[in-house]
Simulated assay, not measured.
Amino acid sequence: MQEKWERWEPIGDLSLKYYVESLSDSIEGFKILLSDAYDENKKVEVIFEDSVHAYRSTDESFRQSVINKIDEQYGTQFYAEWTFFKVANSEYIQWLSEQSYGISESESLIHFCFLAGDSIVDVVAAYEPKITII
């Protein structure tokens, strides 16, 4: 089954495009700090307060195949000026399921994807994060 990407607008007043400023995985949770691509003083903090099941951060040049698929399926305007996405029928979740011998199928997982200006951060969690403009 083919992946289905959807734009995700977790809160209002988000800018169109962000850069990843930092990632933090600690006992306090998983945090992503994003800087507005057009005004670096505007930032957004994405906080998964409990642990996440998996995440990966990849330079966008190493994910060209995914970007090309999104471009072919939805067009450039769909992703070029937006950062926040959810992915249904996720290949990443499917891979995690295979790696865990199906353990990951015991709960409902959500694949969040942050298509930033410089990198792509994929996060798999069982719940939505808290998003704050700072």
Rank of each mutant, 00 (worst) to 15 (best):
D59P: 08
E60V: 08
S61G: 10
S61Q: 13
F62C: 10
R63G: 08
R63K: 14
R63S: 14
Q64N: 13
S65P: 07
V66M: 13
V66A: 14
V66H: 11
I67L: 11
I67H: 00
I67P: 00
N68V: 01
K69A: 07
I70P: 06
D71E: 15
E72W: 01
E72K: 15
E72R: 13
E72Q: 15
Q73L: 07
Q73N: 10
Q73W: 02
Y74H: 14
Y74C: 11
G75Y: 04
G75I: 04
G75F: 03
G75N: 11
T76L: 13
T76P: 06
F78A: 02
F78M: 03
Y79I: 10
Y79Q: 13
A80L: 08
A80N: 14
E81V: 04
E81R: 09
W82I: 01
T83F: 05
T83H: 02
F84G: 01
F84V: 01
F84H: 04
F85C: 07
F85S: 06
F85T: 06
K86Y: 05
V87Q: 04
V87M: 02
A88L: 09
A88S: 11
A88N: 12
N89D: 15
I93M: 04
I93C: 02
W95A: 10
W95Y: 12
W95Q: 09
L96V: 04
L96H: 05
S97K: 09
S97M: 06
Q99I: 01
S100E: 09
S100T: 13
G102R: 01
G102I: 04
G102Q: 03
I103K: 08
S104A: 12
S104I: 01
S104V: 02
S104E: 12
S104N: 15
E105P: 07
